[in-house]
Design a protein around this nucleic acid. Structure first.
Lengths: 139, 139
DNA sequence: GATAAGGGTTCCATTAGCTGGAAGGTCAAT
DNA sequence: ATTGACCTTCCAGCTAATGGAACCCTTATC
């Protein structure tokens, strides 16, 4: 199968598939004309990669997961560990974003958003002293 | 003031400060020996940048915010718009991560995590048909 | 046979926001 | 004079692709 068909089937852009070959995640065969020739197993692998990436696993995670997938002797504990570490990363990221969101939405709410120059958002970023602000000094 | 002192004061690594100069966010003076010489206003600007970056604003947002900060004629609406767009980005990101988290934690819970090879996480990534799985087919 | 459309190929550059390291200049103290 | 802690510039690399240029292959049509 040529790359275009595989792109359609796997949902990954052809560019991405070539990139995945570059970094050794798939190793399609080559036809006489130099075109990549994908087997069913390659397509399957790419779809696997697409789903793993959609869950936010890093490329290196994906590499490990593929290796574990290929190894029928694997211990599910190994897979679970990768997933749990990723879950932690996600949780930390969500926590970080949630904190940003809280501060930012507070500032946005406080800003009139009109033609006047007075702006609590800028005031906060500039750390201008102002009795209306709260815990910033405790940072 | 030399870059090391500014790094200490602003909380930004010296490398980052040089980078910010490179991309035109600050323009410190130079001493006779070639060292960067930062004014109070530069330090203030860098602290501003540090806080804006901590809230997740992009460098380009920061550039705009600095420009607005310097412009005493600005309308707070302009600042607010930047902040609201950023808030939207954050919300979208949180939503995305929350969805990943849900799927992933479901899979992690389903995985025994022992010495045996059976693994629902890999099964899901590989889209192996299995009655225990739910809505994946509807994707 | 020429040509055009629609595949495919490689290679290089770019994105965001730094960070690390090498090779070297400056300065204060010993 | 030399050590150590600064500072300088420049180049490479990180993540995970993506865009584009220049070129090759295949098939159909005129």
């Amino acid at each position: 199968m040529n790359i275009g068909d595989v792109a359609d089937l796997s949902g990954l852009p052809a560019k991405t598939i070539r990139y995945y070959e570059d970094i050794g995640l798939v190793e399609p065969l080559r036809s006489a004309n130099g075109y990549r020739s994908f087997r069913q197993s390659d397509v399957h692998k790419l779809a696997f990669l697409g789903r793993a990436r959609a869950l936010g696993f890093t490329i290196e995670d994906c590499r490990s997961l593929l290796k574990l997938y290929a190894d029928t002797e694997r211990a599910s504990a190994e897979v679970k560990q990768i997933a749990e570490e990723h879950l932690d990363r996600i949780d930390r990221k969500i926590a970080e974003l949630t904190e940003m969101r809280a501060t930012l939405s507070h500032l946005v709410d406080a800003c009139a958003g009109d033609h006047r120059p007075d702006c609590p958002i800028l005031a906060d970023l500039a750390m201008e002293e102002d009795k209306t602000r709260t815990a910033r000094a405790a940072d």
